[in-house]
Amino acid sequence: MTAFKLRATCAALACTFVLVLSAQAMAGHHEQGPAKQAIVLAAFGTSYPEALDSILNIKAKVEKAYPDTPVRLAFTSNIVRKIWQERQNDAQWQKANPDIPAEVLHVKHPLATIADLQNDGYRNVTVQSLHVFAGEEFHDLITLVGGLRSIRTLKPRHAPFTRLALGRPALGMPGEAHPYTEDIAAGAKALKADVDQAKKMDAALVYMGHGNDFFSTGIYSEMQHAMQETYGYPVFIGCVEGYPDFDAMLAALKASGKKKVLLKPFMIVAGDHASNDMAGDEDDAWKVMLTKAGFKVTTELRGLGSLDAWADLYVNHLKELQAR
C-alpha cells in the first residue's frame, strides 16, 4: 500500500473513531438514577481450547479493575464463532473438554452481546477491543458501534443507550484522541521479558503477526522499529498475510548476523496460525523455513494476552475511555 493510501485509510478510521467516541449519547436526566453499566471485550477469538487462557487472562484483569461491573466476552471472527456453535450440540466434545467456560462455548458476536446486555437493562456499555491494532476486524467494530450509536428515538428516554463507547486496540489507532505512537511505545515496553529471554539465548527475537492482504499492516514495521530502538537488539516482525511478509523479515534477520532465533506469535492467542503456520512441521511453516535457512530455531506457543504487561494495555485503554 502506498503512503498516500495508508494516510487516506488512517484518516477515514480517525474520522469514524471521532464519530463513535466524541459526542456523548443522550444523558440520563430523562431517567431516574444512572444507567446500568457493562463492559464487552471484543476479541477475534480462537477455536483452540489451549489458547483460551490468553483471552481469559485479559478478562480476569478487567474484572479485577471493575469488580462491580459485568464483563462479557464476544468474538468478532465468524469462522471461530461457527466452530463454537457446532460444539454447543456436541456432547462428546464437551465431555472431552470439561473445562471450557460456558461463556466461551456460547460466545456471540459483539452485536448480539451488546443487544443481550441492552435487553437486560444495561444502557451504558463500553466495548473494549482486544485486537492488536486497528485493522480489518477493528474497522468493522467501529462501524458496528457507530451504527448502534446512530439510533435516534422519538423520545430520547426510549433510546437504547445512554452511552456506547469503543476502546482502542493495544497498539492504538489513527486520530488525535490519543497518539498511536505512545501506544506502540507502551507495547514495546510490555514485551521486555521476551527481549531478555532472547538475549540470554543469544538469539534474534522474531514474531509472527497475522496481517492482512488488503488492509495496511505498516503498524508491524513501526512496532519492530520501536522494539529495536527501545532495546538496541535485533527484533523482527513478519506477517502471515500482507507486509512485511516472511521474505522481508528473513532478509532483515540474515543481515543481523544472528544464528539463533526465538520465534513467537505476535497475536493475542497462540491458536491455529501459531500452531501450524509458525511452529508446524509442514514445509511452509516458519520454523521449518528458518531452519532450512540455517538458523537454530526455538519456538514458544504463547499468546500476547497471557502476558500480564500486555493484558494491562487493554485495562489502561479501558480506564482512559471510562474517565471521559
Rank of each mutant, 00 (worst) to 15 (best):
I100N: 09
E136V: 14
Y231H: 08
H29G: 14
I83E: 01
L263P: 07
L250P: 06
V40L: 13
P70S: 09
I237W: 00
S306P: 06
Q118M: 15
G303E: 00
H210S: 02
A270G: 05
A204H: 01
Y233P: 14
Y233C: 15
V145D: 07
G303W: 00
A12M: 15
P156K: 15
E241Y: 11
Q224C: 11
A51C: 14
D90E: 14
A102L: 14
W84L: 08
G146F: 06
D99W: 00
T113G: 04
M289S: 11
V145T: 09
M227T: 04
I114P: 03
V132M: 11
A96K: 13
I114M: 08
A251P: 01
P49S: 05
E63I: 01
E86N: 15
A279F: 05
L154S: 11
E31N: 11
N78R: 15
I79P: 01
R163Y: 08
R87S: 04
A185R: 10
N89C: 06
G257L: 07
F4L: 13
E282A: 12
V145C: 10
L307N: 08
V235K: 00
E31A: 15
M267D: 05
P234G: 07
Y220I: 01
N57D: 11
G218Q: 08
M223P: 01
D213K: 04
V40P: 12
L166R: 04
I58M: 11
T113R: 07
A203C: 02
E86F: 04
S221H: 00
L304Y: 07
A96R: 06
A25S: 13
A12D: 12
K254Y: 13
A25V: 07
R123C: 12
C239G: 07
P70G: 06
H139V: 14
D283C: 03
L321N: 02
Q37K: 08
S306G: 12
D120Q: 15
I39V: 10
D245I: 02
C239W: 00
I219G: 04
K200F: 00
D183G: 05
H273A: 03
V261W: 00
M223G: 00
D277Q: 14
M201P: 02
K59S: 09
Q92K: 14
M1I: 09
W93H: 02
A311Y: 00
D308M: 07
K260M: 05
W286C: 07
T126M: 12
R324N: 08
A190K: 01
E282H: 11
E50F: 15
M267I: 07
H109S: 14
R152G: 09
T9S: 08
N276A: 03
K258F: 03
K61M: 14
M201T: 01
V145K: 01
V71T: 07
I142N: 12
A12W: 11
L164S: 09
P110F: 11
R149V: 08
A279H: 08
E229Y: 03
L250V: 13
H131G: 10
Y207W: 05
F236A: 07
T153M: 13
H317E: 08
T69N: 08
N212D: 15
M278C: 12
L318E: 06
D90P: 01
F75K: 13
E222M: 13
Q128A: 13
N97R: 01
D194S: 10
K292W: 02
H210I: 07
D202H: 03
